[in-house]
Simulated assay, not measured.
Amino acid sequence: MSMVFRLLSNQQFQVIAAVQLLNVFSTNLLSPVLPIYLKMQGMGESQIGLIMGIVSLGALIVRPWAGMSVDVRGSRIITLFGQVLTAGGLAVYLWAADFWQYLLIRFYQGIAMAFYGTGAISFASGVESSENTSAAIAYFSLCTMIGMGVATSIAPSIFTEYGLSSLIFLGLASVTAATGLMWLRGHEVPLNGDGQRVPYRDVLRTKEVLAPSICLFGSNFALGTAFTYVPLLALSLNITAYSVFFIAFSVAVVCARGVVHQINSRWDAERTALAATIINAISTMLLGIFPVTITSILSGALIGFGFGVIYPTLAAYVVDKVNAANKGAALSVIAAAGDVGYALGSSVLGIVAETMGFSTLFASTTVIILLSGYYFYKALWDLKDQGCNA
Rank of each mutant, 00 (worst) to 15 (best):
V203K: 04
S213E: 01
P64D: 02
I297E: 10
R257Y: 10
Q109G: 03
L237P: 02
F107H: 01
S9H: 07
A136F: 07
I369Y: 07
S166D: 10
L223W: 00
Q12T: 08
E208M: 11
A112P: 03
I146S: 01
S2I: 13
Y116V: 02
Q41E: 15
S347W: 11
L80W: 07
A330Q: 06
L210E: 06
V189M: 13
Y162K: 11
W381F: 14
I154C: 08
L7D: 01
I239A: 05
A91T: 13
V319P: 03
V19Y: 00
L235A: 08
L7G: 01
M68H: 11
Y200W: 14
M3K: 09
E354K: 14
I282D: 04
Y342G: 03
S75W: 00
I168T: 09
F246V: 03
A173W: 02
A135M: 05
G308M: 08
G308T: 10
E45K: 15
C255D: 01
A363L: 09
F305R: 07
G67P: 04
G387V: 09
Y108N: 05
S283P: 03
N220S: 15
A315M: 15
L371Q: 11
G341M: 11
S372I: 02
G338Q: 05
L60S: 06
F25Y: 07
I78E: 01
A248D: 03
F159D: 01
I137N: 04
A173S: 13
I247R: 00
L85Y: 04
T366E: 04
G58W: 03
A315E: 12
G42T: 10
I351L: 13
S283N: 02
Y375C: 03
M148I: 09
T228M: 04
L7Y: 05
V19M: 02
R201T: 14
N238K: 07
G171S: 05
G258M: 12
F107I: 04
Q386P: 11
I51P: 10
R73D: 08
S153E: 03
N326F: 10
S129M: 09
A124N: 02
L50V: 14
G58V: 00
I61S: 13
I263C: 05
V244L: 05
R76F: 08
W100E: 12
L233A: 01
Y37M: 12
A301Q: 04
Q20N: 15
M113T: 07
K384A: 15
V367I: 12
F307C: 06
Y374P: 05
Y162V: 04
A136N: 02
S296M: 12
A234G: 05
A281G: 15
G180L: 12
L167A: 11
F246I: 05
Y375G: 01
A177Q: 08
V4S: 09
N323G: 15
P312G: 08
Q101V: 14
Q41P: 13
G186Q: 05
N10M: 12
R6C: 10
N326P: 10
S332R: 03
V340D: 11
G126C: 04
T228F: 06
G89T: 09
I303L: 14
A269C: 09
M52F: 14
S250L: 06
R197P: 01
I278F: 12
F362G: 07
A151P: 07
A226R: 00
R201C: 14
N10I: 03
